[in-house]
Nucleic acid binder design. Structure first.
Lengths: 119, 119
DNA sequence: CCCACACATCGACGGATGTCAATATCGATG
DNA sequence: CATCGATATTGACATCCGTCGATGTGTGGG
């Protein structure tokens, strides 16, 4: 090469690209957020979440959720577990029945973050 | 059974569950939204989207995006294709270079929908 | 005490997904 | 035209994911 690296100006090193106007999402934040989105990225889980949120009192029992889908009971149980383990659904047992409720915090944070990228 | 079905009251048919306070997300809407969330549900794609949005002028060329990750060029190209095909990133070729820009509409809609489930 | 019921867990299977190396395409340049 | 550099496509591979049937767990009732 005819020039030493230290002589390269910024314009020469970025011939095609515009500079950054703000800090992009850090890798660590992306790794933390992606699992939440992955939990939401399924039609059945989206409907489950919405169905729980639509119930009066903010909670729904599993027997009611099972009936809303043409899927086996273990499959619904699996989806509820996924939503529960990532913090989007809370769980409480009362007698024989199990009730799930939407945790509003994570969902609101996600919505703000997604909407915020569009600026 | 000792009673005919028409004699069952609502209370008897829903012993454990609360009624619905509003309409849940229709299945068709869930099927339409889930692919967008699936596209977002990857740390690399989240960072790609944020990185494009962070560039001055709202667009970034691929060579710049490649350098931001420890991944092969085909892998970045694949992720950009996923984001482009679901409508989250726009693409324009200028000379040898390809520029991607964030489409604000779908992202804003998604953010509102996610935040809206929490009510 | 045993059974029925509500829900969770396990194991298996097929299909989708993220990654890479190799190769193709396509515009610019000499 | 030959070549180079930027980006896309292809094919292969390992892994992950959604689904089911079978089974386990715990509670309430007779």
């Amino acid at each position: 090469m005819s020039k030493s690296l230290v002589e390269l100006t910024p314009v020469e090193t970025v011939a095609c690209c515009a500079p950054l106007g703000r800090q992009p999402l850090p890798a660590a934040a992306a790794e933390r957020i992606a699992p939440l989105l992955k939990a939401l990225a399924d039609p059945v889980r989206l409907r489950l979440l919405s169905l729980v949120a639509s119930h009066v009192g903010g909670e729904a029992c599993v027997c009611d959720l099972n009936d809303a889908f043409d899927l086996s009971q273990p499959t619904i149980s699996h989806h509820l577990k996924v939503l529960h383990e990532c913090g989007l659904l809370g769980r409480s047992k009362r007698g024989v029945w199990v009730y799930y409720r939407v945790e509003p915090g994570p969902l609101a944070d996600l919505g703000a973050l997604i909407g915020g990228v569009a600026t």
